[in-house]
Each structure stands twice: as structure tokens, then as C-alpha cells.
Design a binder for these strands. Structure first.
Lengths: 179, 179
DNA sequence: TCTGATACAGGACACACTGTTCGTTACAAT
DNA sequence: ATTGTAACGAACAGTGTGTCCTGTATCAGA
């Protein structure tokens, strides 16, 4: 990727992120973004065809970081050996925390729902391969339940003032859901 | 309320509801609504100051029906004597089902998040007075968890093809959450 | 170091939607 | 019957959108 492209892309991300902290998503205009990022109008549209796509790209950026297998095996977290599911969840929470600045902006800007939607998509894959069998209740329902519970736990976490560590959040989650 | 007002209000609700089934919420314009409802532009703005407010009003309409105490004591449901919490939940589900046409439109139109948000506000009150004490986990978190679980259960239910009765949904919910 | 390619700036454009205004008409309530 | 008020409909300025253009700066590869 061209250095110039990366630069403007980051400038736009940064500007958008700042704007989200001060006004609602729906009241942010493309004009606001390009003013804050100090890029030309046509430049913006060369990168993103719409404001929604920009948000989508920002979310993808975050999730790529959080869920990428590379990151999952970073030595400093040393979860590489421990393959317990609980550790993996804590791991995800750690990486979400690293991106907390962007995420808090997204939630504050009232486009948290979109973030939640994408988060759920990723989580679906994580929990799908893990959820134990259980006749009674439709698997579909249970998976939805667990994914929702985790996503809402994350939202609740970021709604607070950072009183909890990833480990504590993980504990809360597993105390409420059995999987 | 003036008969004329009710008429136009209903016309607008009806038009909006239909539109939601065929296009995304964000791509529906006020112009679309007044064309479909066949009312003047100024008439629309006399009723609702914005598209969001219209949605809000529609949701309130639904929740007023679902959560009103009058409705809660309708004799045909004969939950009036049974004060078990579980019955109350089933009751709520019944009334949601009665409004399923509007609700499905809202979910389909991709403004389900707003509906969910309002639903959660109402549910908060319902579960708040019911949730048993339990030291370990912050009450805040547990309440959020239960409310989310129920709201997501509802979304899951409406996402299906009506395969389940309110009683079955209630059973699924209480099998997944302890309260 | 040169050169072709490409990303950007900046301005201009038609277009769509918004939210308000106002004089007129039709209907409700009493 | 009269009085208030809701709806009509047409027009309006204002705002944001998405696209196109020309000229300039920067990049990557030979």
C-alpha cells in the first residue's frame, strides 16, 4: 500500500474517531470528516464510498487486530500454550482493551449498534466451534444467547470507567453463562 | 384527539411500516413517507419533527400496548391471578406477538437496534424489581445480562418464521437464564 | 536519476432531501 | 351556524452529497 494512502487513511480514521467523541454518528457529515482530517473531498471518496463504509472499515481494523491468529499467539500474553477457552476469551478482552480509545468513541457516537453487529459476527465463529452439544434447546438459540451475552458484556464493560480488568470481565462472563 | 389527527397519524404509521418492509430505515426519506401516506409535507412535520421521532413514536405505541398494566390484566389471558414471574414474561411475549407485523418491519428495516434499545429500557423496569440478590456479581451487570438475554431472545424469535409459541420462547429463556 | 503512474488538492457542479412558511380549503366540536 | 384547527400544496433557502475536472506533488521501478 502506497505510503500516501496509508497516511490519508489514518488521518481519516483519526479524524472520524475524534469526531465520534464529540457528536453523534448520524450528525457527522463527510464535510466534517474531511475538514478534521484535512483532506480533499475527492480524496475521501477515493477511499470510502460512504460514511457507513468508513465505519465498517474502522471496525474491521479493530477486529482484525483482536481476532487475528497472529495476535492470538503473541508471546507477551503467553496464552499460546494454554489453549483453554477461558484464556482465549480473556485474550480477546485484552486486545479489545488495547483498542479501547477507538471503541469508546464508537459507542459514544451512538453507532455502537453497528460495532456490536460486527462483533457478533466474529464471535459467532469463536463460540460456534466451542459450544457443547445439548439436546433440549436449539443450538441456534444457545449460540445466539452466548454470543449476545459476551457482546453485551463488552458493551457494559466499556460503558463503565475502566474499573475492571479483562480477567475480571472474563470471570463475570463465565459466571453468568455456561459454556 | 381530533379524528383527523388520528387518521393522518395512522396513515403515517401505516406507510412507514410498509416502507420498512421494502427498504432500509436510513434510505427512507420523509418524502417517501408522505408520498406513501398521501399527506402534505407540512402535515408530517406537524406530527413528527423528524424521522427518528416517528420511529420512536411507533415504538412507544407498541410498548404502551405490551407493557401497560391494563393489558396485563386482560381477562382472556387470565394471568391476572397467577402472579408468577414466568407468567408475566409469557404475557409480554404474547403481546409482542400481537404486534408482530409492526415489529418485523422494524427489524427488517434495519432499525431494530433502536427498537431493542427502547425494549431494554422497559425491560429494565420489569426485571429490576424481580432480580434476586446475589453478592458475588455486580447487580448492575446481572441486570444488564438478564435484560439483554431477554431482548435478544425476542429478536431471535422474530428472526425466525414463527415456529415457536410464546410459551416455548419463555421456556427457552428461563432455561438459559436463572432469575 | 529519470519517468510514468497515481494519489492528492481544490474548486465547481447538479442533485436530493430537509425543515419552514403562508394563504387557502376542509373538517370537527360546541 | 360559527369558530377553531388540521390538512393542503406550493414555494423557499439551506445543507449535504457524490462526481468530475485540472493541475500538482509524491511514489515506485527502471
Amino acid at each position: 500500500m502506497d505510503r500516501r494512502q496509508r497516511k490519508t487513511r489514518n488521518a481519516i480514521f483519526q479524524a472520524f474517531s475524534s469526531l465520534l467523541e464529540e457528536k453523534r454518528y448520524s450528525s457527522i457529515t463527510v464535510q466534517d470528516i474531511i475538514d478534521a482530517a484535512d483532506v480533499g473531498r475527492s480524496t475521501f471518496y477515493a477511499h470510502f464510498s460512504t460514511k457507513e463504509e468508513l465505519l465498517r472499515a474502522m471496525c474491521d481494523d479493530i477486529f482484525e487486530h483482536v481476532f487475528s491468529d497472529e495476535v492470538m499467539r503473541e508471546p507477551e500474553h503467553d496464552f499460546s500454550s494454554a489453549d483453554s477457552f477461558r484464556d482465549r476469551i480473556t485474550h480477546i478482552l485484552c486486545h479489545l482493551q488495547e483498542k479501547q480509545h477507538h471503541i469508546k468513541g464508537i459507542f459514544a457516537g451512538e453507532c455502537g449498534e453497528i460495532f456490536m453487529k460486527y462483533l457478533r459476527e466474529y464471535l459467532w465463529g469463536v463460540f460456534d466451534q466451542r459450544l457443547p452439544e445439548d439436546g433440549e434447546i436449539p443450538r441456534d438459540y444457545r449460540l445466539n444467547h452466548v454470543v449476545s451475552a459476551f457482546a453485551e458484556t463488552v458493551r457494559w464493560w466499556f460503558g463503565g470507567r475502566g474499573e475492571y480488568t479483562p480477567e475480571q470481565i472474563s470471570a463475570l462472563f463465565f459466571a453468568s453463562v455456561d459454556c
